[in-house]
Design a protein around this nucleic acid. Structure first.
Lengths: 333, 333
DNA sequence: TTTTTTGTGTCAACGGGTTGACATATGAAA
DNA sequence: TTTCATATGTCAACCCGTTGACACAAAAAA
């Protein structure tokens, strides 16, 4: 069996209280005793039971993370940064991939509460989960409205939509289409569409947005892109609401011999920048989003939220694709 | 304050023992009582404290995951699958990004033990962490040797190296170079190199492997690739030890006007398949790796490991890049 | 010498739920 | 009528570490 504090006390020849005092640096302890205790802990390969401590202190330092899927490089990088920041502050991270399924999100939410997490960061996309209102815990949402009470961190989706659309116009595109994920009303990401439509209209044109029926399913993207090419052969510019979708547009465009199609994506993850440096995209400040989310969570914990804004919008940046070498491009391999 | 079992008992007009019996379905309980209790739990928004239960049962259903970084799409997808499988079995996942740093890996290891995880899955890459030998817990390593006792799950790296090299030879390449991550001896991934060198030698040629000094740093990849192009302008085939490296090779090749360079990567993640469908790669069975790792962990927990193999190698597959449309390729955008 | 600081021990309660032992009280079957 | 299955309560111990109260020394400072 695993050793406990009594075993350490016995081996060190002191009382359990003294061991506890050594571990928590409380009261007076002589160097000699401290050494004896540490020695005993090493000898028995002892690790203090954090469960027991958490139980007593009513605080676990667990943070729950609910995201659709860290397979997606945007969420992967975001969660990576969040975990890093949490770790540096002594928090531990419980990872949940909800797959945008209501049932999964619900049961994760219950699980996190049963496990007494100190807070939750949610980046998933289901609505109609009323549970959020009754949770008596610090929560921060990323790019998502959950309830009145819950602060939201998002990139400047509206501005992103504008930048993307303007760039396409500047490139000389005449027929610019926007492709968006399934419409989840009241999701900040829909403001990308607003930015696009506004900009198009400002140029006296008519916006056209295609929606993908189900997200997280690659094939749905392909289907939608093909549909667009079939229905709108005149298209010469596409603003895709995320980089993977943009990548799909590009590869379908190659298949369909549309060398002049211009594409802008959204997210600007490292991974996609490496794989598709030629892609122009709206770069989200992923690290800042992570940092802000954790800060807001901690602020809630310390009841410092009175004056804080409930919605924090971080600036985006258009990153132009690096132009590749001329006509002697690499085809395959 | 959060309600506890006594609050529920009081409200339902029963004893705490009865509440516990309802929650755990033990002994005799009448429908009436069950309803009263459940009603009370709902009313007070009660969630049983899993910490207390875990403390008593000496089992948390926490699984620790230590990986270099889920920013990398391979680890991202792997961890995604692992989390999914764990969740379906009632396990919860504590995520750790070690960044391949010894100090981080050590402190995560300690943290996981303090938090009484039921097992650990390690996919990180540091050696010289002797702690693993003294951990009295089910552990599974992915693509990494940790100690005698610890089973390893890996893709067939050797075969992958062979397939990749053969494909390049079949494509007519005369000067094939291999690029590998920093040499961590006794890591199964080094067998990719063995497969490459063996195959090259079998064809009567001389293998040439370049090593990247530090991994996880994109710029190191670029530097190495440029160095290769400078030192070996005759190169016409490259086997890169992972897809992001292969992507770097491709984009650098474009910059350097090497349209005929053939490249093979390794991993075959969804993300890279979407971003770079033209890339030929060795596809790891990511889902199977995840499943096997979890199974081995559970098997250890149930002491069913006596007969099991200590190293499980899963087959890989060469996935040819989809040839893109002819010369009228998309350059930028 | 007296007072203070330092060092350690004992003890019990606590956090929240679990479980076995045992008592008791119905209602139903034998 | 006896016996048994059903239903619930009380009680204490347990999981493991924390903490406050209090006692008692020994060493250092006043």
């Amino acid at each position: 069996m695993k050793p406990n504090i009594k075993d350490i006390a016995r081996l060190a020849g002191v009382s359990p209280t003294t061991v506890s005092r050594v571990m928590n640096n409380r009261g007076y302890i002589s160097e000699k005793t401290r050494k004896k205790v540490n020695q005993a802990m090493k000898e028995l390969n002892y690790f203090p039971n954090e469960l027991a401590r958490s139980l007593y202190h009513q605080r676990t330092r667990f943070i729950g993370l609910i995201f659709p899927t860290i397979s997606n490089p945007f969420f992967g990088e975001l969660v990576f940064h969040i975990e890093n920041i949490c770790a540096s502050m002594g928090y531990k991270v419980l990872l949940c991939n909800s797959l945008d399924r209501v049932d999964k999100e619900r049961s994760y939410l219950e699980m996190l509460q049963r496990n007494q997490v100190d807070g939750i960061i949610v980046g998933a996309h289901n609505r109609h989960i009323s549970e959020y209102q009754s949770i008596d815990l610090p929560i921060v949402a990323i790019d998502r409205y959950l309830s009145e009470r819950i602060p939201v961190v998002a990139s400047d989706n509206f501005q992103g939509g504008i930048l993307a659309t303007r760039w396409l116009i500047d490139q000389g595109c005449r027929h610019i289409i926007h492709i968006n994920g399934p419409r989840k009303l009241e999701t900040p990401a829909n403001r990308r569409r607003d930015g696009y439509e506004r900009t198009i209209e400002e140029h006296g044109r008519i916006p056209l947005t295609y929606e993908i029926p189900k997200s997280l399913i690659y094939h749905e993207n392909v289907k939608t892109v093909r549909k667009i090419f079939a229905e709108r052969p005149e298209v010469d510019g596409i603003f895709a609401s995320d980089d993977l979708l943009a990548a799909t547009v590009i590869s379908e465009a190659k298949k369909c011999h549309k060398p002049d199609l211009k594409v802008v994506g959204y997210d600007g993850t490292e991974t996609v920048r490496i794989c598709l440096p030629q892609l122009t995209t709206i770069k989200q400040p992923i690290h800042e989003i992570a940092e802000t989310a954790v800060q807001l969570l901690v602020a809630q914990k310390n009841n410092e939220m009175t004056d804080r804004k409930k919605e924090i919008i971080l600036p985006v940046e258009l990153v132009e694709g690096r132009v590749q070498a001329g006509p002697n491009n690499i085809e395959d391999s």
